[in-house]
């Protein structure tokens, strides 16, 4: 069965735990857009949500840095402040992705023992349907160079689409990341919102394939190392035209929520 829904969501932890430095009204507008994702996910009656996210050096430290990985444990759990999350993992779909991904030429790592990163549970905190749906966490290395190239991410997304379309389950795909931000660097207060706006305009015209031609250096310069998760999704959704549900640039982060017709 073809994908039933596709979205991209931000995951900045200030959406979950707001320090006084953050504009409350802006945070609530992003929550509203994520609420729209929740409504659409519920309406799509997804059986499983496959999330593509970058690890914030939480599940994978310098003991091993996989470019692309799949979590295939029974449950995926993580914590942030007072929040404790635990999601059922859809093991048949997770296994199919690992096995068929490797057959397709993508040398995926997999794990059954990882703490879940907030890049996964921040969007789910706001967008998980009332009756919780099992998930499959897919990892793309975004923060520990050398990261996979945009071209490789796009190709992986296309292969992923083939795997998911062949499943009987109703699968929703979510990319978690971005847009421009520079945590821990001297650019923290000056994200590249022009890059974001040009990107969103191109995606609205269905020109997502162009992102496969970006370089890692360009992503790093634009504060968009996490765009690799979006590029993976763009490989899966092809030339579908993005619908921008919100773009809310804060003083340090371009928050974008986007939907694609599939």
């Amino acid at each position: 069965m073809p994908l039933v829904a596709a979205f991209a969501c931000p995951h900045t932890p200030q959406l979950l735990v707001r320090p006084p430095t953050e504009d409350r009204a802006l945070v609530l507008r992003v929550h509203e857009a994520l609420g729209e994702v929740k409504r659409r996910l519920s309406a799509a009656r997804a059986d499983v949500i496959v999330l593509v996210a970058g690890d914030h050096i939480e599940g994978f430290f310098l003991n091993a840095v996989p470019a692309l990985a799949v979590y295939v444990g029974a449950r995926a759990a993580g914590e942030f402040g007072r929040y404790r999350y635990a999601f059922d993992v859809h093991e048949p779909v997770a296994r199919a992705i690992v096995e068929q991904g490797i057959e397709a030429g993508f040398d995926l790592a997999y794990s059954q023992q990882l703490p879940l990163d907030y890049a996964f549970y921040v969007p789910l905190h706001f967008a998980m349907p009332a009756v919780a749906v099992p998930i499959v966490p897919l990892y793309v290395n975004v923060y520990l160079p050398p990261q996979p190239t945009p071209r490789r991410c796009h190709a992986w997304g296309a292969a992923l689409r083939t795997i998911l379309d062949a499943r009987a389950e109703r699968v929703a795909l979510i990319a978690s990341g971005g847009l421009s931000h520079f945590p821990g660097t001297e650019r923290y207060g000056t994200p590249d919102f022009d890059f974001d706006r040009a990107l969103l305009a191109a995606l609205a015209e269905g020109r997502g394939a162009e992102t496969a031609r970006l370089t890692g250096e360009e992503l790093d310069k634009a504060g968009n190392v996490e765009l690799r998760t979006w590029i993976t999704l763009l490989g899966a959704v092809g030339a579908a035209r993005a619908e921008v549900l919100c773009y809310e640039p804060s003083w340090h982060h371009g928050n974008a929520v986007v939907a694609w017709p599939v």
Binding site: L15, L16, V17, R18, P19, G81, R82
Partner: peptide, 16 residues
């Protein structure tokens, strides 16, 4: 630094 601040000043954060 964020996590140290969250521990030190928990009441300055709003949880959603």
């Amino acid at each position: 630094q964020v996590r140290l601040t969250m521990d030190r000043e928990p009441t300055t954060f709003e949880y959603f």
